[in-house]
């Protein structure tokens, strides 16, 4: 079986700036979701621009369904794209916009009407699709964007930061939709800079950092990598000395910094350390007042991984 997506040392330059270093990976044929994870400026959008046929690679090869996607109608007609951003022209209504996008995909007449009705029903927008975009919530607008990507029944869906700014309910709803589309046989690539978001959605992750594909694998494999990253925890306590005494007895401790109202602990493998901390608090060994993770954000993790790979 040929893969849906295949990159062979594909790179992209914007003039002198390297947007994406030579990157190689494959997405298999058939349904499934892959998360494209990386902090802002990591090259996620650049990679998506290559995959959506907006730009040709500066080097290497990009293949979707076995063909180069750049200005290739045969590939573009099998691909659905939800770009980043949430702005629509003032006064624009959902249905005329959706109709135009359907016509650009080659649909017309009753076929277009049927496709619009079904796409709107898939995203749960049958009732609200006629509204102007300005009267829709952010979640509704995102669902309309997904509807336009589904109109022509694509086999491969590309979503660039689809969860940005969405409230938790709309986020869960969109995740459910994507899961059901993947179950129905669509290959989906979702970019995000939030690990938790992607982890909820997918079994497979591509990690990008500074234009490089840093890691590729399952969520569990990536988590293992992350566990090696020392996480800083600020522990507020009545006695900083008591916290320090307790912490030095544990192997996970990498560094310790005393503060006026507690201590900052740098620990490896927080998934094994945190249950021990919890047990100590419950047993009354630690006079804990507060717990504040300082650098659990993705940027810190990426910094760590980059150093690790250097």
């Amino acid at each position: 079986m040929s893969p849906t997506v295949s990159l062979q040392r594909a790179s992209l330059r914007y003039g002198d700036i390297l947007g994406l270093s030579p990157t190689t990976f494959e997405l298999p044929e058939g349904g499934g979701i892959t998360g494209l994870l990386g902090p802002n400026g990591a090259g996620k959008s650049t990679l998506i621009q290559l995959l959506s046929g907006l730009l040709p690679p500066s080097g290497g090869e990009v293949r979707i369904f076995g063909e180069a996607p750049f200005r290739n109608p045969q590939v573009l007609s099998r691909l659905g794209f939800v770009p980043e951003g949430d702005r629509f022209p003032t006064g624009l209504r959902g249905i005329p916009w959706l109709r135009m996008m359907g016509e650009l995909s080659g649909l017309r007449g009753s076929g277009l009407q049927g496709a619009m009705e079904r796409a709107l029903s898939v995203v749960g927008m049958e009732l609200n699709g006629r509204k102007p975009f300005s009267e829709m919530s952010k979640g509704m607008r995102q669902r309309m964007r997904l509807a336009q990507a589904l109109l022509h029944n694509p086999e491969f869906l590309l979503l660039d930061e689809p969860f940005n700014g969405m409230d938790p309910e709309a986020r869960l709803l969109l995740m459910d939709m994507l899961r059901s589309l993947a179950t129905a046989g669509r290959r989906i690539l979702v970019s995000s800079h939030i690990l938790g978001e992607v982890a909820q959605l997918t079994d497979r992750i591509l990690l990008l950092f500074r234009g490089r594909l840093l890691a590729e694998g399952s969520v569990a494999e990536i988590r293992e990598l992350l566990d090696r990253h020392p996480v800083e925890l600020r522990i507020g306590a009545e006695s900083a000395q008591a916290v320090a005494r307790w912490a030095v007895e544990h192997d996970e401790l990498v560094a310790l910094r005393m503060e006026e109202a507690g201590a900052v602990l740098a620990v490896r493998n927080p998934r094994s350390f945190l249950p021990k901390l919890q047990a100590a608090v419950l047993a009354g060994e630690l006079p804990l007042l507060s717990l504040d993770p300082l650098d659990l954000n993705l940027d810190a993790v990426f910094q760590f991984l980059t150093k690790d790979h250097a």
Partner: peptide, 30 residues
């Protein structure tokens, strides 16, 4: 409600209106 995806068959290329006409018509209507 979330519905199980059920979409129409993919359109055949070159069966629709030329894209230039589609975009121009959209602008005129606007």
């Amino acid at each position: 409600p979330i519905y199980a995806p059920s979409l129409p068959p993919r359109p055949v290329l070159d069966q629709g209106l030329p894209p230039a006409l589609v975009i121009a018509r959209f602008d005129i209507r606007r």
